[in-house]
Design a protein around this nucleic acid. Structure first.
Lengths: 212, 212
DNA sequence: GTCTATAAACAGATAGAC
DNA sequence: GTCTATCTGTTTATAGAC
């Protein structure tokens, strides 16, 4: 009994070390990039030494991929799922989604750089490309539900596939987040929601034919 | 006379070396990133040795910034300016712009990775951020002209600022290019033009109020 | 399981030959 | 103006102490 408690505690300790290393890795990779970040400074940022890192991860690449698995990309999916279940945005889902996206962009400072780093890594390593593409399909699918509902709300069945609209919304979001990072004045808070509004009235009219 | 010809030829030779180094640098940075690419392999890719590189550029960073100055980001601006002056897209400027963006995305394979690399560098180096932001304003401003014309074509004066629409179009383009790179099937050729169509009918209706 | 010490390879940048 | 050789620091990854 004592023994099992002890074993559990040790397992927990190791798990905690792993988690701390993953957090430090995410932050350091965001700051300096995959090639630019050294395993040494990652370990140090986590409060450990290089030995602990190699005891928990096979090498730098595996650590990087592990960060991809646990963090970063699914934020948007989480966010949109909150909107679907929550009381927010019952009136105007698009404005609510706009606010939420701004929130994701501003709160999680590492989000965009980390995503860019993963994207580059995926583009450069064909073996990883499918894994990353699958990760990116997550938020798009979450958006697809929202998009589908919104399109239903406005009437008739799909002349435009919800999947395509979801891809566009996702791409627009990523693009705006990046632009906001280098030139905040050019991307005011409201622009997210406005752009979504334009897009959806446009889709709506495409469905039912031009309205004038 | 003989002397001046000789001097000119040498200057040209050096200029050519510089240009070759810049091309090789752009390609290598796109392939391996700023931190991942070594000056050695850049020089080698250009057909020169490391000494020639350091004879033409102060260091790796300056070479990188020089690549930014000469290449990469202004492609979209060039493209949209062609549309404005050309015979193409007189009927449907948005569809033409869509085709053109697809072309930029597919033909210039280094475009997106290089842009991502510059973006990351700018985000990480505050001193460079303004320079890069200015570069990014170039294509947006070119788009703004197109957008303004298109909005005029549909009628009344701006309830929506053309600048904001241009930012959205640019962001959308960048996002779609990135998504297409990791999951081509999710971003068919027509989607660029379609999305622009949705956006503009949406903006149009926002200008003149909802149409139903 | 984590740390310290170290091996082996490689980086950016410089100096001097041609 | 370009090349070769080299200096110096840093990198990833491993081995053995605790």
């Amino acid at each position: 009994m004592n023994d099992s408690r002890k074993r559990l505690t040790r397992a927990e300790a190791k798990a905690q070390t792993r988690e701390l290393l993953l957090e430090a890795a995410a932050s350091t990779f965001a700051d300096k990039g995959f090639a630019g970040a050294s395993v040494d400074e990652i370990a140090e940022a986590a409060g450990f030494s290089i030995g602990a890192l190699y005891s928990n991860f096979a090498n730098k690449e595996q650590l990087f991929m592990e960060v991809l698995s646990t963090r970063a990309t699914s934020r948007v999916a989480q966010a949109t799922q909150i909107i679907e279940g929550g009381e927010d945005g019952l009136q105007d889902p698009m404005a609510a989604l706009g606010r939420l996206l701004v929130d994701v962009a501003d709160k999680d400072i590492d989000f965009a750089p980390l995503r860019a780093e993963f994207w580059l890594y995926a583009v450069r390593n064909p073996a990883v490309l499918d894994t990353f593409a699958a990760r990116m399909r997550e938020p798009t699918e979450a958006l697809e539900h929202l998009v589908g509902k919104e399109m239903d709300r406005h009437g008739n069945p799909a002349a435009v596939p919800a999947t395509n609209v979801a891809v566009v919304v996702h791409a627009l979001f990523q693009g705006l987040v990046q632009q906001r990072r280098i030139d905040p004045a050019s991307v005011p808070d409201e622009l997210f929601g406005q752009a979504l509004g334009w897009l959806f009235t446009g889709v709506k009219n495409a469905e039912q034919g031009e309205c004038r």
